[in-house]
Every structure is written in C-alpha cells, then in structure tokens.
Amino acid sequence: MFTVSHVTKRYGKLTANSDISFGVEDGQIAILLGPNGAGKSTIIKCISGLLRFEGEIRINGYPNKSLEAKRLLGYVPEMPAVYDLLTVGEHLEFIARAYSLTGWQEYAASLLERFELADKKGKLGKELSKGMQQKLSVCCALLPRPKVVIFDEPLVGLDPHAIKELKDLFRELKRDGASVLISTHMIDSVEDYWDIAHIMMNGTFAATMKNEPAAQGEKTLEELFFEITEKPAAVAEESV
C-alpha cells in the first residue's frame, strides 16, 4: 500500500499539484484521470521519488525516497526508457543485477513471452519500435516483483495484444495483493478493472469515484469526467 499526504508540488510560481491526499490499499487498482496538464504525471513522479515536493508519501510505511521504499516500488514512465546499446535480455539482466535479484530468469522469460518479446531477446534497444520499447519498460519495472506499481499512460502506443496482456496483468497484480496506480486520459481504456478513480483538474482532485454497481440515475465515470472537465469551458461560454 502507499499513502500520499498533503502533497504540493510547485515549479516556480506554477503549482502543478496542490495539497493532494489519497492512498491505495494492497490489492487495489486506482486510476488517475484528467485532461492534459492536469498534474497526473507530476504526482506520479512525486510518488516514484523523482521529484521534490511538500508533504509526505509513504510506501508500505517507508518514506518514498528511502531504499526500503525503492525496493518495493515499480515505475513505468510515460516515455519508454530503454538503453540503445543493450539487448532486450540484457535490460532484464541489468535490472536483476541492480536490484540484486536471485532466480529471476524464469520470471523474466515469462514476462518476455507474454509481451511477445521472447523472440526479440537479442535485439538492441535502438532497434525496437516505440511500442516494443514500452513493453520492455513494463517488463523492467515488473521484474523485481514490486508491491507498488505506478503506470504513467501505459497503454499509449501499444498494439491490441499488448493492451490485452497489460490489462490482464493489472488484474493479476491486484489479485497478488499489489497496489497499482494508473494514470491515463483515455477513459475507455480503463473499463472495469479499477477500484477507485480520481479525476484531476488544475493540479487537484476534482472528484473521486468508487467502482461499485451504479444505482439508477448515478453518473458513469465517463459522464462524471466530462461534467467536471468541460465545466470551465461551459461557464466561460455562458459568460461570453
């Protein structure tokens, strides 16, 4: 599990995230929805320990920048991060060595297999398409079997098979008790596997919705999203 308490992130005068608090329990999938520039990637990078911030973030009780927290955390960045001169297999070896993993080969092989990278094990990072790089990035993040996994726009650029596999993987992570946070601006891509959704606007949470059977008359996630994100434009139009 992880908790985010009163996190504010400023870039000079610009406040990218303002007093955000939320948590994701073990075996729970949370999604961050919001238009471009809402602050989703910023809070994700704060949780991943890449940015400085005001407030507190804890991973299984450890401060998020501690070594204990880093051992429990997996992060899949929005832009695939692969080394041009390492092969697919060597990326996984690199992660295994860096995290001092033992007996990782079998799990690495299964990850490559399910993301259709097994036959590309000997290919260099620079020879992979963007989609394949993204899949490799996912494999690298999952190899240490993290208890908290953060995905930043993970489905962008993936082929239909990889999207299906990744969605299955989200469910498996949930079943295995991991805490999963997924940022996306594609509402239709999150379907039904989420437990809690936070809709972000202007650096804050504008609404939070739990995935429970909808009572008659209740809004769907998509309806709520558009109601929130299109409100300022509508207000502006009315005022004109």
């Binding site: 890449l50 070594l67 880093k70 960045p77 690199f94 992660i95 860096a98 995290y99 690298c140």
Partner: peptide
C-alpha cells in the same frame, strides 16, 4: 533515465 533514481542503492 529513471533507473538510476529507482535502484535501491
């Protein structure tokens, strides 16, 4: 690259 920051060392 993110790895250098994420590695628990």
């Amino acid at each position: 690259m993110p790895y250098i920051y994420m590695i628990p060392e």
